[in-house]
Design a protein around this nucleic acid. Structure first.
Lengths: 341, 341
DNA sequence: CCGAGTTGATAATACGTATTATCAGCGAGG
DNA sequence: CCTCGCTGATAATACGTATTATCAACTCGG
């Protein structure tokens, strides 16, 4: 049962294949004219046979596939990754839908050590017109290669240059973190500490930079790697810190829990602000103060930016930074005046 | 920045386009021979350029693209749909990954009245090798048309015939529901009621059939449409029902809550079993008894079945039914012996 | 030194559609 | 009668890949 083609329609209507195509595409240029009765005859046959043009052949002729690739550095749907990827993907899906594009998830990329690699043996990136890159951290060399190959892509999350500026849609962690510090300062805080790596990924760098700007370089830096929340808490209290700016949400929650367990009042004895509160806070018992990352909007705009790149390479701004909105929680308060009494 | 083609590769490697194609397809027939050094030269260029064959052109000639379409009747990522789609997609992603296939989400299909339509103006189904259909209910006419057009697809969830058997991977609601009833019978229950539509969708039909088989036709049927949980509860109690077999999880929870509010003890006064408990019960305060739908496994097997269809049209079993596992909760108990005393 | 067989590569073609160039027919104006 | 302009349709081609037929060069046995 071979597929019905325009040739078949043409034969049935007693015309040429070209006429069928012209009728289908409703061409009414001055250059292409079709007699009304001929057009009707073709339309009749099409209706009778239920013919529909093969979209694949159609795409052969038009260059773009209307397919946007989505490359995730971890599997998308396992629940461990879900909370992270979901909001981004929601925005991506919504924008793609509006642009009438399909989304291609590169599940074929082999997972090595829990991570996918863009450039592997049988790379299929070019199936899509362009690609959205999604991941906690994206290897610098892969970004560089994408740039080198002039492949249209957009990273979700700000990225440092890699053989040229990397097209990306990020969140303005620096400004948001700085604003958190300023707010704490207004409440009377003077002893700040940044809790987390503070380096490595761009997102950490940005937060640390914002922290430094807000504290005028006077803040402490408590690294969490290899330490328990309790140990970090001890270090903070010993140093006389009154407000902890925590890099990761999970670390923030852990710190607050550790404080509660020891009878350290939050925010009475120690204020804790988190640089990234999930959209739906999983821990209902703790309403942490901090800012929200506009993940959905980032997803949306990354697709929009990619579409702009595909239309016109000389697009204005290759990098977009979206503002984060303050989240009023219950873990930031005034510092205790009498704490050294 | 035109697309890289085999012609480009051929030029760079100093061979003809045909050789590139032959190398790519790893042809080792006696009729097609390629010198090892030539092959290597081509492979080198391919690797350097990151070339990947245009799937659309490929599809023109061959049948397969290594692309599996995923058609969802609602948007996937919005949180309202997430809980439903998520487990299916997890299985789909995992299986596709193993098969080295990419997933194409048909986000281009326009959403009308909150639902997508497969067959619309510019249908792109054939870009994929085949398609997984995912949705609470799938229009019968679309299934029929897919069958008529001989397009390879698999529906997730059992479907009635539509111009022939519909390839699908479903859950055996009938058997699972019947087993629930039997279990209640063993505990001493004799007054059963099925709560829900009990018809319309295949999933409802199956549950109802299982219920009828389990009750030997003696059970009641309480429809929920247009009624509050309280009204349903009243009807159940008035009829002397001791165990309610509830179609939807949300309805089940609502019924239990309504009972609690009125001081009706569950399961003391009324047992409630649910025909479909989510993997991660969102309502932590209620551990409902029922069975779990193997959503992830359904997703996985649907891809596997589709792959089988693509390899060999005369596949053995077009329809698969997976068993549901009993979930021991706290809403099914022995009926009160003295309730009429 | 010639015909046959082998090796390695290429030219040609098909897939189904969209588009462009071309062409046959015809009526009108010169 | 010839040419021009116009109408309506067709032939030809391109898109990128896979496959088949073909072909040049070389080897080898006789």
């Amino acid at each position: 049962m071979p597929r019905i083609t325009q040739r078949d329609i043409a034969r049935l209507a007693g015309v040429s294949q070209a006429v069928v195509s012209l009728v289908l595409n409703k061409r009414t240029d001055a250059t292409t004219r079709i007699a009304p009765e001929t057009r009707q005859r073709v339309l009749d046959v099409i209706r009778e046979t239920g013919y529909a043009a093969d979209p694949v052949a159609r795409r052969m002729v038009r260059q773009l596939n209307q397919i946007i690739g989505v490359f995730t550095y971890e599997s998308v749907f396992p629940s461990t990754s879900a909370d992270f990827y979901y909001p981004f993907l929601r925005g991506i899906e919504e924008c793609a839908e509006q642009l009438r594009c399909d989304l291609l998830l590169f599940t074929s990329a082999p997972v090595v050590d829990g991570r996918r690699k863009v450039f592997h043996e049988n790379n299929r990136l070019r199936i899509a017109d362009g690609c959205i890159l999604l991941g906690r951290d994206i290897p610098h060399d892969e970004l560089a290669r994408l740039n080198r190959e002039n492949y249209p892509f957009v990273a979700v999350g700000r990225r440092d240059d890699a053989g040229g500026p990397v097209p990306c849609v990020g969140a303005d962690y620096a400004a948001a973190t700085q604003k958190l510090v300023e707010r704490a300062r207004e409440l009377g805080h003077r002893e700040f500490a940044y809790v987390g790596a503070g380096e490595g990924a761009e997102s950490a760098d940005d937060r640390m930079n914002g922290f430094r700007a807000g504290t005028r370089g006077s803040g402490r830096h408590e690294r969490t790697a290899g330490r328990s929340a309790g140990e970090t808490l001890d270090a903070l209290l010993a140093a006389g810190v009154t407000v902890a700016v925590v890099e990761g949400y999970a670390d923030g929650i852990a710190l607050i829990r550790a404080a509660r367990e020891r009878g350290v009042d939050v925010p009475g004895d120690l204020s804790v602000v988190v640089t990234g509160v999930p959209a739906e806070s999983a821990d209902a018992d703790i309403a942490s103060t901090g800012f929200r990352i506009p993940r959905r909007e980032m997803g949306w705009q990354s697709v929009e930016l990619l579409a702009a790149l595909l239309e016109d390479r000389s697009s204005a701004t290759l990098q977009r930074l979206l503002p984060c909105h303050f989240v009023e929680g219950q873990t930031l308060g005034e510092p205790r005046k009498d704490r050294f009494d």
